[in-house]
Computed example of a mutant assay.
Amino acid sequence: MFITLDLESEEPIYTQLKHQIIAGIAKKELSPGEALPSVRSLASDLGINLHTVNKAYQQLKQEGFILIHRQKGVVINPDGVAKADDAYWTDLTVKLRPLIAEAVCRDVTKEDFQKLCSQIYTEFQPKE
């Protein structure tokens, strides 16, 4: 998996890193049980602070995307990511609400918003 970071973005680097790893899992570029680079190694490869990588890894661990073993290192959760439960749906609603509100304020139609969501969702579907 190739990671690219925008150091000029307003989005924090650890968030960009976290999102790219999640996208790699969603696109099946990263498989359950697959090893990720160590914190030091990835920080060195990307030219960023190791605390930044550690923060991304810790959040991914808390959300169930990765496991961190003392001997095995960092691996994609071999059991896969937990399926959406009520708490996930609540969190998703909280995250989407302001995005939809802003879209409405900018006269984005419901159809155009749904079309965009569908196009993005398609990026994560297996290629046939």
Score class of each variant (00 low, 15 high):
residue 2 F to I: 14
residue 5 L to M: 07
residue 5 L to A: 01
residue 5 L to V: 01
residue 14 Y to N: 10
residue 18 K to W: 04
residue 22 I to G: 07
residue 22 I to P: 06
residue 24 G to K: 07
residue 25 I to N: 04
residue 27 K to Q: 00
residue 29 E to H: 02
residue 31 S to K: 15
residue 32 P to V: 05
residue 37 P to I: 03
residue 39 V to K: 05
residue 40 R to F: 04
residue 40 R to C: 09
residue 46 L to Y: 06
residue 47 G to I: 04
residue 52 T to S: 11
residue 53 V to N: 06
residue 55 K to I: 06
residue 60 L to A: 05
residue 61 K to W: 06
residue 62 Q to G: 03
residue 64 G to N: 09
residue 65 F to E: 00
residue 73 G to H: 06
residue 78 P to T: 08
residue 79 D to E: 15
residue 80 G to E: 11
residue 81 V to S: 03
residue 82 A to W: 01
residue 84 A to P: 08
residue 85 D to G: 13
residue 87 A to Q: 00
residue 90 T to N: 09
residue 91 D to I: 13
residue 92 L to K: 09
residue 92 L to I: 11
residue 92 L to Y: 01
residue 94 V to N: 08
residue 94 V to S: 03
residue 96 L to S: 01
residue 97 R to H: 12
residue 97 R to C: 12
residue 101 A to R: 14
residue 104 V to T: 12
residue 104 V to N: 12
residue 105 C to N: 13
residue 105 C to P: 00
residue 105 C to Y: 05
residue 111 E to W: 00
residue 114 Q to F: 14
residue 115 K to R: 11
residue 115 K to A: 14
residue 116 L to T: 08
residue 117 C to N: 11
residue 117 C to H: 04
residue 118 S to A: 12
residue 118 S to D: 11
residue 120 I to W: 04
residue 123 E to S: 09
residue 125 Q to H: 05
